[in-house]
Amino acid sequence: MSMIEFKDVEKYYGDFHALKNVNLEIDAGETVVLIGPSGSGKSTLIRTVNGLEEIQQGQLLVDGFDLHDPKTDMNKIRKNVGMVFQHFNLYNNKSAIENIMLAPRLVLKRDEAENKRIAMELLEKVGLADKAANMPSELSGGQKQRIAIARSLAMKPKALLFDEPTSALDPEMIGDVLDVMRDIAADSSMTMLVVTHEMSFAKAVADRVIFMADGQILEDSSTDSFFKNPSEPRAQKFLSQVANH
């Protein structure tokens, strides 16, 4: 069953055509990596999936809901679709554990003891149980991002979106975050859509790779075939560029 489905989707920022005739289907449980040059529309695409950006034309089905239908309750979708941002977007006025517990408390009305237990479990999972009481300003970038991932997981989502989760991190922090993401991908029921420049991560974890340029999907193939023989010249050029640094 498909978890995310784009059908002839068009997205404009004013006059600027940001997504051009996007067709894409992601099955439940799949891990898909989205790559492409800067400005190609990766963030735009991923942000339409949880309604942070509206589409102007076409159909976008997420977990069975049509996002282009004004009657769709966006909050229902966001309950089931988590997002991890490049700049973490942790709640600056809340401690690490409160960051994790807030949405389950307010949105899911999860019982407080249960909420705390789950939050502690997630902190263990991301290796930060000792930082539960710390404020975001007291955490390193890598720690912030792992808390942000735990915050998303606390909602027990069906799908997770990652928009360049390691791009703002110092190189030595990247590994810890990717390890956590690898763990999540290993859970066969979780659908993941990941924008990243970490090609080794893509090779190791992705079922499929999508290559975008100028608002269009130019290539959509299995990870193996994408890295062995990309059919698009622009994808070939992109790969050689990211391989060079």
Partner: peptide
């Protein structure tokens, strides 16, 4: 920072929350 509102909305909170 607008990321605070965005993070909260993506996390499932309503605008008012």
């Amino acid at each position: 920072d607008s990321g605070q509102m965005e993070g909260a909305r993506a996390n499932g909170l309503k605008f008012g929350q």
